[in-house]
Every structure is written in structure tokens, then in C-alpha cells.
Amino acid sequence: MDKPASAPQRPQNLGRTALICTGVVMGMTGLSFAAVPLYDMFCRATGFGGTPKIGTAAAGKILDRTMSVRFDANVAPGLGWKFEAESSEIKLRVGETKTVFYKITNRTDRPTTGIASYNIAPDKGAAFFVKIQCFCFTEHTLQPGESLEAPVVFYIDPEIADKRELDGLKAITLSYTYFASKSGQPLAQGGGNPVKDDAGKTNL
């Protein structure tokens, strides 16, 4: 009498393969969540993409070279604030620390909350524009008619003098835009969703 056929044995490494696949998927998911903050840290450290560098102290030396810094202030539709710099342009020596104040006023009849993003133009100058203090990335809630004066403290990195290709760079523009915000995120006009760019990155 023939013996019944035995059930096929499960490969010994099947469990190991499943574990590896699960680990790969979890790793890729983790990297996708980490990509945005890591990219933001990279931009702030290098000035890539028009993002100024963040400093904690003065430059330590001042050069004879003089440059201009222009100040641009914008308000996204729907916020109802007035936003302007005390000066549209200043001249300073490379390495010299300067403070410029922006005035923000709520022109609506209700309390509103906003948050500012910023950019530097041209991009090649961003790596040498160093902010020591800034009001950006911080939510501000203003009552009807209330005004706020907020400083930005900065200098132009003396290392710019080592870049011969930037000898012709005479001016840098610091541009801010205020958005309506909620829970630290800028909101799209007329809605409750964070503003995102084409890559899905929250626009801060």
C-alpha cells in the first residue's frame, strides 16, 4: 500500500526573508519621514536653495568690502496683515553685524495668527548670509489693530571673499512672506491645510 504523500516542507529561510523584507519596508518608511527635516537641516547648514545659514555669534572679523542687503516683505492672501521693514535697503561691511526691524500689524477685526517663511536671492549669496536672530518659524497671534516689531540680526560671512567668482556680487535680498497659520504650520488660502510645495514639503 502506497504511503500518503508528505506535505512539502517550508523553506527554513522563509521566516528570515520575511523579517528582512519587513525591515526594509520600515527603514524606507522611516527615511521618507526623515527626508524633509534632514533636507531642511542641510539647507540651513549650507545655504542651499536660498536658505540662509544660522549663526550663534558675530563673524569675528570685518572686511573693507561693502555690500547691500535689500529687505522684501510680503503677506499671503487671506491673512489681512500689514508687514514692512523699517528700511528697504542698507549697506554694511562684510562681517559687520546688523539689526533690522520689521513691523507687523493686524488690520482685521479679529485675532489672527501668522508665521513667516523666508528666502535669499540670489541663491549663490545664501551660503554667506548668516542669521543670528530671526522671527521666522515662530507663530505670532495679533489682536485686532495690534502691532509687533520683530528684529532680524545678521551678517555676511567674510568667507565670501575667498570665492573669487562672487567678487561681482554687490547685493543680497532677504525676502519674507507671512502666512496664516495653525499649530505652527502655514495654511493655504481659504482652507485649513498646510501649504506644501511641488515635492510635498511643507513650505516654511
Rank of each mutant, 00 (worst) to 15 (best):
P194A: 01
S183H: 12
Q185I: 06
E96M: 10
L142D: 02
G190C: 09
T112Q: 15
D40F: 00
N74I: 00
K61R: 11
R93K: 15
I156C: 02
M26S: 04
D167M: 05
T22R: 08
G125D: 11
F137P: 04
G191Y: 03
F129L: 13
L169Q: 01
V75S: 11
P77M: 01
K103P: 07
D72W: 09
V130S: 02
K170T: 15
I54K: 07
P186S: 07
T22Q: 09
I156D: 05
L148K: 14
A57S: 14
G49H: 10
K201C: 08
P8C: 11
A7E: 15
I90S: 07
I156V: 15
Q143V: 00
K91T: 13
P186C: 11
A18Y: 04
V94Q: 01
L19Q: 00
S68Y: 06
H140R: 12
A58V: 03
K3H: 12
P151W: 00
G95M: 05
I156M: 07
G200D: 13
V25G: 04
L38D: 10
Q189N: 11
V24T: 08
Y102E: 03
F33A: 12
V24E: 10
T141L: 08
F179A: 02
W81R: 13
T112D: 12
A73N: 14
F71M: 02
G125H: 04
P52Q: 04
T66Y: 04
L38C: 08
V75K: 11
G192P: 04
Y155M: 05
R107H: 00
L148H: 06
T46A: 08
D72Q: 14
A59V: 03
P158L: 09
G168Y: 03
R70A: 12
I120N: 10
L187R: 10
Q185L: 15
L166E: 00
E89S: 14
P194H: 03
L79C: 00
T105S: 12
L142R: 11
A126I: 00
G49E: 13
G200N: 09
F48L: 14
T138F: 06
P151S: 06
A150G: 07
E165H: 10
G30R: 12
D167Y: 11
A73D: 03
Y39M: 04
G200I: 12
Q189C: 04
A150Q: 13
L63T: 11
P111S: 15
S175K: 14
E86C: 01
A85Y: 15
V153F: 11
V152R: 00
